[in-house]
């Protein structure tokens, strides 16, 4: 008896064919290797980055010959000695690290209540408003935002004009270290909120209700419930804000008035202003190393589990 076509439809046959082809290309005996195959694109990407780092490492060991503007053939640690001994580089590195730390702390302080309100508010209108206010800056690039601050905070800007109305003469609000930190905090705030919000969403609201019903006031609840359970978000947001601030170029360049350089500005100068690719490569590698060590330290102190990446939570 001829089998009914409806009993074994065409699309099943197609699927069977595809399965057979897949079986030929990747036999069942290889199934244990499937996760590694899925890793391949990521490995390739990381491989390209590592290859780039190796090239940069090679450049960092060569010095610039200013009679030919070619890199030296022989390897030397001269660039590293300069980077660690010259006052300009140590000043800029210190300013970048300290600035990133200050920006991270201030940003987290501002981002925490914002995230908490956004997650806990019963008003959907307020939540939407906070979300829009959060995402709007993402549509405006960093450079445009920095130029916006030039218009607002300049000597003839809106703030000084407002001060002028009450008889205060113009104040220099731009082109100094606080202006750079201010610009960075404003730029980093959305990143921190976006990292904190999921961690706060994961805290059951019932825990806070239970604490309250057991007599804990708002401060105790915050200290013993909300803050400890927000740790994964705080650590993640802190890492993102710190590393982005440490490597930022545009805000120090635009709001710093040329005298508040961060490491990225110094790297740019070496590559493009003095044509010294070796020194630029050295500073780049040192920046990667310092950033990686600090991230590693955070993982050691707080544990990778704080970022909900598995492992033991501490």
């Amino acid at each position: 008896m001829r089998p009914s076509r409806a009993a074994y439809p065409m699309r099943w046959r197609v699927m069977d064919s595809l399965e057979r082809i897949a079986g030929l290309l990747w036999p069942r005996s290889f199934s244990a290797g499937l996760p590694y195959l899925m890793l391949l694109p990521a490995l390739l990407l990381v491989g390209v980055l590592v290859w780039g780092l190796v090239e940069i490492g090679d450049s960092s060991l060569r010095t610039l010959d200013t009679s030919t503007f070619l890199m030296s053939e022989n390897y030397t640690l001269a660039n590293y000695q300069r980077a660690l001994n010259e006052r300009f580089f140590t000043t800029v590195a210190g300013r970048s690290l300290m600035g990133s730390l200050i920006v991270t702390v201030i940003t987290l302080v501002f981002a925490f209540p914002y995230s908490y309100l956004m997650v806990r508010t019963p008003s959907s209108a307020l939540r939407k408003f906070l979300l829009v206010a959060l995402f709007l800056p993402f549509f405006i690039g960093q450079v445009v935002r920095a130029y916006g601050w030039l218009i607002i905070l300049g000597n003839q800007g809106m703030v000084n004009e407002a001060l002028g109305l009450v008889g205060v003469s113009p104040i220099r609000l731009l082109y100094n270290y606080p202006a750079v930190l201010f610009g960075l905090v404003q730029y980093m705030l959305p990143f921190a909120v976006l990292m904190l919000a999921p961690a706060m969403t994961a805290i059951p609201a019932e825990l806070e209700s239970a604490a309250s019903s057991l007599g804990a006031n708002w401060i105790s609840t915050f200290r013993h419930i909300v803050l400890p359970l927000s740790k994964p978000g705080l650590v993640g947001a802190g890492l993102v804000v710190f590393t982005l601030s440490l490597t930022d170029f545009a805000i120090p360049a635009i709001l710093g008035g040329g005298s508040q350089d961060f490491i990225a500005n110094a790297i740019y100068d070496q590559f493009f202003r003095t044509s010294d690719q070796g020194m630029g490569a050295t500073l780049s590698l040192l920046l990667v190393a310092v950033g990686s060590i600090l991230v590693g330290l955070v993982f050691m102190v707080f544990g990778a589990g704080t970022l909900a990446m598995g492992g033991d939570r501490k």
């Binding site: 010259e86 006052r87 300009f88 000043t91 800029v92 508040q260 350089d261 100068d269 202003r273 003095t274």
Partner: peptide, 11 residues
């Protein structure tokens, strides 16, 4: 010269 100028100005 650039490095020295930067050293003075960034100090």
């Amino acid at each position: 010269w650039f490095a020295k100028f930067k050293e003075i100005m960034q100090g």
